[in-house]
């Protein structure tokens, strides 16, 4: 029994939609970063499903997994820089809520 490719794509779509909802609803900057991680994971799953769709047993298509590795790397970088920014903000303003960071707005 093998996993059909549509199911991977459906799962990726659902996860991405959940991540988008979380990104817009949550006002805590750490939660927003977590939602971004969720969306990156959905993108990863789509890359892998695409690679699986286009490869045969004789000639596997490996670009998908390679891009997925790069996505994981970018996610790690994003988490590191994002969390450093959150820490710097918390030191300055004692809050991580995005609603209270409005110096640029007014």
């Amino acid at each position: 029994m093998t996993v059909p490719n549509e199911h991977l794509l459906f799962l990726a779509a659902i996860l991405f939609a959940i991540g988008v909802c979380g990104f817009f609803v949550r006002r805590n900057s750490i939660m927003v970063l977590l939602s971004v991680e969720l969306m990156l994971n959905a993108a990863n799953l789509t890359f892998l499903a695409g690679s699986r769709m286009h490869s045969t047993a004789a000639r596997p298509e490996l670009s998908g997994p390679i891009f997925a590795i790069f996505v994981i790397l970018v996610a790690a970088v994003e988490a590191g820089v994002g969390l450093a920014l959150v820490i710097a903000l918390f030191r300055r303003k004692q809050t991580v809520s995005l609603d209270q960071l409005n110096e640029l707005g007014d």
Binding site: T2, V3, P4, N5, E6, L48, S51, R52, M53, S55, T56, A57, P60, L62, P65, I66, I69
Partner: peptide
């Protein structure tokens, strides 16, 4: 959309290929 079972058995992404 159907994945080749033999492909999944062997693994799509072999480490050496990657």
């Amino acid at each position: 959309m159907a994945a080749d079972p033999e492909l999944v058995e062997r693994g799509v992404s072999s480490l050496s290929g990657l």
